[in-house]
Write a protein that binds this DNA or RNA. Sequence first.
DNA 1: TCTGGGGTCCTAGGACCC
DNA 2: TCTGGGGTCCTAGGACCC
Length: 408
Amino acid sequence: VTERRILHVDMDAFYASVEQRDHPALRGKPVIVGADPRGGRGRGVVSACSYEARKFGVRSALPISQAYRLCPHGVYLPTRLERYAEVSARIHAIFHRVTDLVEAISIDEAFLDVTASQRLLGPAEQIARRLKAHIRAEEGLVASIGVATNKFVAKVASDLGKPDGFVVVPPGEEPAFLAPLPIGRLWGVGRKTEARLRDLGIARIGDLARFERRELEAIFGKNGGGLWELARGLDDRPVVPESDPKSIGAETTFGQDTDDPEVLRRTVLKLADRVARRLRDEGFRGGTVTLKFRYEDFTTLTRAQTLEAPTDVATTIYRTALQLLEQIPRAGRKVRLLGVSASKLAGARDHPAEQLGLFSKRDERRRNVERIVDQIRAKFGARAITLGSLVSRPAAKGRPRGGQDAEE
DNA sequence: TCTGGGGTCCTAGGACCC
DNA sequence: TCTGGGGTCCTAGGACCC
């Protein structure tokens, strides 16, 4: 039996590196990609930052207001997701020269199963070296790579080498490699689980590996068995090239908390429109609509409703989401965030029009309208046309003057 | 410190059916 | 009038990941 050889490729400071490559004037400077800092009062977090910015203590997921305090002279840029996606696609093309077993886990990270590739291309380490060199030569970007017998160990290895990392864990050495690392490195151990583990006196992966499987299962349930395996470097999950999404959603945090019903209504419409457009673009219909609601104190509620028939129509998603919004107790509290998502996705082809009941015949007419809107947007840009009730309401009713993120 | 936006997976209770 | 066990679907919340 040949050992599996898995690569984890992780682009270093991806968004920030793409910006520095696209704009040479930014090279060598602290670049912070994410929310608008608004002079220190911005909401949101850092999506990515250059290593120059990290010297000041800036990290991804740090609140942007804190980043601004730490690094007021940094270059703050909005995220340009489409641009990063283009670059990501080209990097994936490089991966596919080596194997078709490529699993994207985000825009800047992927697993590659190169077990079989070795026969033609040489040992996994050599394949990994060449990948790194090609990404640098062709895209001017730096990738960190971990090489191991499974996904989990490969991922830890690539993280450990950053930046410009290249870490190989030979077969059999997984437990020794993992033992000294903090338990937070384990896949699935976040803030809460880490605290529970520390309470048990478990700080490093090696501490966990000393427990019996049954003991961990007794404490952590099903998850305990998983922890036991990962701590020993056991992980037999396959590299799965692609899978259909389980949900498609959109959400937005307001620039300022609000209780203006008209702002809430228009925001729900805009989110429903975004979700429906993506459903149509990607060929899905959503069977369940979920509304997400966050109060100013950050407590978060969701309300969901399953439809009579799955839909990709903005008007239907909007109406459903509005009904759900009405179910949420407000009691004078302001709203920080609204989100709309569609789940129980079915392929559009799974539900031909003839099979649909009355409910969806109405959908069918609306869909035709919205498809035309799609075409106009494709031709003249997303701003060319928007759903009627976003524009038809006169600004009579004391709408706040600009400044609302959700209104763009 | 004051917490984005995109997701996945798990748990648990209740409705409902046989 | 009291009450089984299994299965499935739905909803809500929470932990976690990038």
